[in-house]
Every structure is written in structure tokens, then in C-alpha cells.
Simulated assay, not measured.
Amino acid sequence: MEKEEAEIDRLPIHLLAYIFGLITSFTDLAQASSVCRKWTEGVKQSLAQRNSLSFAGWKMDDDSTARLVRLAYNLRELDISRSRWGCQITDIGLYQISLTNCIGNLTSISLWGMARITDRGVVKLISRANSLQHLNIGGTFITDESLFAIADSCPHLKTIVLWGCRHVAEIGLRNLVNKCRKLESINVWGTRIPVDCFIDLLNISPALQIKPSEALLNDGSAAVLPVA
């Protein structure tokens, strides 16, 4: 006797894709995609329809992250911040993501706390992210090399978080503000930038919001920025 088809298997692909789109667990999606060809196609279509992906809280590696981003070709927002389990993403992963079809359409990227990445990976990623408006690279060890790449590749940048980026310097910040004329907000808490540099940034762009309003000096003492 022929086995009766399960109710869910009678659903058309677009409805399967909708259902899979409600799943937030990437482990569950991976398992679903291995059930059968129809489910594999449903998972692919669900990813293709997503405008936002967040891997925060998930233990992801370079290959699995890049594979999912590659399928999400309508992506606009990408969050691959460090998870509580420890970030496994390296410069190799950022390079793989830089080759995906969606990279030029991304308006928001968060690399928060990704201690295993360097300027090499960030520069590769940013070089093709020409639509980027919001970038969070706080808690990383990037230097002015990344800031120069951002300044050259991201003319639409509006906000950037450099929280705790203690290896960036005045020259990188000045170049960034000079070239990214749409920049509205910059978070420099925990950096080693002297207050004089922040005053220069405000002279370049008077409307720029520098967060926090009390910038930290190299010795850790607080200095209040002048009020216009």
C-alpha cells in the first residue's frame, strides 16, 4: 500500500518558504533543508525573501555564515556580532561574505565584538558595501586602515560605532568625517583619541553627534566637549 503524503508536503513551495521564514533557529533550518528536495527549496526561498539576518547568540563559523548570506540575496541588514558562545568568524568569513550578491545592497552591518577579525577582513568586506548607512565595529581591534577603507567605499554612511576601538587614531577619524559627508553620529567611547581631535571633527561637520558627549582621554579621565 502506497504511503499517504503528509499534509505539510502538499503545501506549495511559496507557503513552505513562508513557514520556514518564521523559524529563527539556524540549526532547525539546516535540519529542515535536509529532509527532502522540496524542503531544501523552501528553505532557500525563505532565505531569499529575508531583508535581515542576525547571527547574534548563535555559534557560527565562516563557511556556514557565508552560505546563509549567499542565499539571502535580498538582504539589507546583517548582524554577525559576537555571540555568547564565542565568535567563530574570521577574516576568511568576511572575505566570503564580500563575494555574495547582497553585499552591495546592505545598509546595515554589525561586527560588534568580533575579536578574531582584522583590518584585512574588514577592508575586503567594506570595499563592496557601497550602500552602507550604519556600521558597528565596536569591540574589535581595527585600525585606521579600516577607517580609510570605510571613507573610500561608504559615501552614504550615517552612523558608525567605534566603541572600544583603541587602535584607531586621529588621522583615520578626520579622513572618515571629511569623506563621509552624510555622517550624522559617531560613537568613540573607550578610544584613545584626544579631545582636540573631536573639536576638529566638529569644525569639519558641526552637526556631527559625537557619543558619548563626554569623550575619554588617553589616561581614562573624562573631558566634556565644548558646547556650541
Rank of each mutant, 00 (worst) to 15 (best):
Y73G: 03
I89T: 02
Q88C: 04
S108Q: 05
W112N: 15
R70M: 05
L94A: 03
R116A: 01
N101M: 12
G138C: 08
L111Y: 09
A72W: 06
T90G: 04
A129C: 14
F148N: 13
T140W: 01
T118S: 15
G104F: 04
P155K: 08
L106H: 08
W112S: 11
N136I: 02
D91E: 07
L135Y: 06
A115Y: 05
I117M: 07
R116E: 13
D119I: 04
G113N: 10
S127F: 14
G93P: 14
S153C: 15
I126D: 02
G93T: 01
A129M: 14
S127G: 02
L68Y: 06
W112H: 09
S127Y: 08
L135G: 09
L135M: 08
E77C: 04
R70S: 14
A115C: 12
I103F: 08
L78F: 01
L135F: 02
I92Q: 13
V69Y: 06
T107N: 06
Q133N: 05
G86P: 01
N136A: 08
I97Q: 03
S98N: 01
I92V: 02
I137A: 14
Q96C: 07
S108R: 15
I92T: 11
R84F: 08
F141R: 15
G121R: 03
T118F: 13
R120T: 13
A149K: 03
S108L: 13
I109N: 00
I103T: 02
S98M: 00
S81E: 00
S98P: 12
R128G: 03
N130M: 11
D119Q: 06
I117E: 13
V122T: 04
H156A: 15
G121F: 05
I117N: 12
N105T: 06
N101C: 09
